[in-house]
Simulated scan of single mutants.
Amino acid sequence: MSKVPLTVRGAEKLREELNRLKYKERPRITEAIAEARAHGDLKENAEYHAAREQQSFVEGRIQDIESKLANAQVIDVTQLNAGGKVVFGATVDLVDENSGDEYSYRIVGEDEADIKAGLISVQSPLARAMVGKEEGDIVTVEAPGGTREYEIVGVRYE
């Protein structure tokens, strides 16, 4: 399996979630299953079935996170010598050429993307158009609503 890019912050968030699931959620669910078993007949015990379902979800998520971390290529953008170019992990300030609206996005891995938080996937059309460009460049993006043009007004490595 190929390596998947991940920012340092994204890797930390995944590790935090993994620790929470392993050391808080897993023991809590184990206790809930034991308590439900103590109530008797498991066939008609809704608490038992709900706890088992939670356990299945948590174990699946643990495996998913462990797999993502094992296949991650953690990139620390502050250590890159990008020379002002837009690269994975960079925060880019843009101005829409048509409306004059200003945007700021950080280019992150697919699992970290959250448009509301200003985090866009490196696989997104906008990120692909920006990578390799520099401050002052105009990027053209084919969006569902038509072609959009943005000027890169700033590139930061945080």
Rank of each mutant, 00 (worst) to 15 (best):
G118Y: 01
R148V: 08
E158Q: 08
K22F: 06
H39L: 13
D137E: 10
E17C: 03
E158G: 03
H39Q: 14
G109A: 11
S2H: 10
Y157I: 02
R128M: 12
L80A: 07
Y157H: 01
E12P: 00
R52C: 15
S121K: 08
I115F: 04
P144S: 08
V155R: 03
R15N: 08
A82Y: 03
G146E: 11
R28H: 12
D101P: 01
A117V: 02
A82I: 08
T7H: 04
T140W: 11
I29N: 08
V8K: 15
L94M: 05
A32F: 09
P144Q: 03
K22D: 05
V131D: 00
T78M: 06
Q73C: 00
E31S: 15
N45M: 06
E44G: 06
Y103K: 09
A50P: 01
E59F: 04
Q79I: 05
D101K: 08
Y105H: 08
G100Y: 08
D111F: 06
A70F: 10
T140R: 14
D64F: 11
D76Q: 09
R9L: 08
E12D: 06
V92K: 06
T7L: 03
G60V: 04
I29E: 09
V95R: 12
V122R: 00
S124E: 02
E142L: 13
I107C: 00
E149D: 13
V4Y: 05
F88T: 00
S99Y: 10
A50T: 12
L18R: 02
S67D: 12
D111Y: 07
K22S: 05
V155I: 12
Q79G: 02
L14Y: 07
E110V: 04
G60S: 12
L94Y: 02
V92A: 09
R61S: 14
S104A: 13
A34G: 05
H49G: 06
R15M: 08
I65N: 10
I120S: 01
G136F: 08
M130C: 00
R15L: 09
V74D: 03
A51Y: 06
K133H: 14
I107V: 09
K22E: 14
A127D: 02
E44Y: 04
Y23W: 07
K13L: 10
E102L: 12
A70S: 10
H49I: 11
K116M: 06
K68W: 02
R15D: 03
G60D: 11
D111I: 07
